[in-house]
Amino acid sequence: MATALWTRPLRAHWFNVEARPAIAEFEKRAANDTPDDLLVRVGLDDREAFSRLYDIMSSLVYGLALRITRSRMHAEEVTQEVFVQVWSQAARFDPASGSARAWVSTIAHRRSVDVVRRSQSTRNREEGMNPEPDRTDIAEDVVEADERERVRSALSELSDLQRQAIEMAYFGGMTYRQVAEALGTPLGTVKTRMRDGLARIREIMEGEDG
């Protein structure tokens, strides 16, 4: 005889076993959790770490998805998909090859852009034109004001062309070819501005962090 399922009472008990030295140790360290630590632990199927990682990173993911898709509904869907992917693929995260913030926001950006490009291509087929984004659906109420302000201040140090090229690609979901065309700027120049601008932002933000 065998159970077909891992029954709930058994599962609940499993998680409530008092003698869980490893978890207790984790909880002691919790006050110093960095996103990198948390993501590594998520890779070991640590639910508590996942919950904390969500608390720390969900504003980043949701805000980015909202900015790109311009729809609360899409932003919620993307956020959920992103965290499902984070949960299932966290074991692939390697702190040596980038930060957890970068890892998670890369997933979030890709998913958001996919949503936009998919709906654009659908609408383009249907209407033969580029849709104007719907700006009425952007949440203005609760923002992570401090983080926003710091980055906006960093952005103000970029040249206009650097900032435009980066924002059109990152928030507008445009390819660098489309950016070059829209700005009437050679491809090589756009690539260089994107590179210099991104590196500069990181430099400024890292200087602040340190």
Binding site: S59, R67, R72
Partner: peptide, 20 residues
């Protein structure tokens, strides 16, 4: 790429919005 993705993640921070 690791460096530039860090910059992109910073950009994402400029629009951080708490989800419902």
């Amino acid at each position: 790429l690791a460096l530039l993705r860090g910059g992109a993640a910073d950009l994402a921070g400029s629009v951080a919005t708490r989800p419902p």
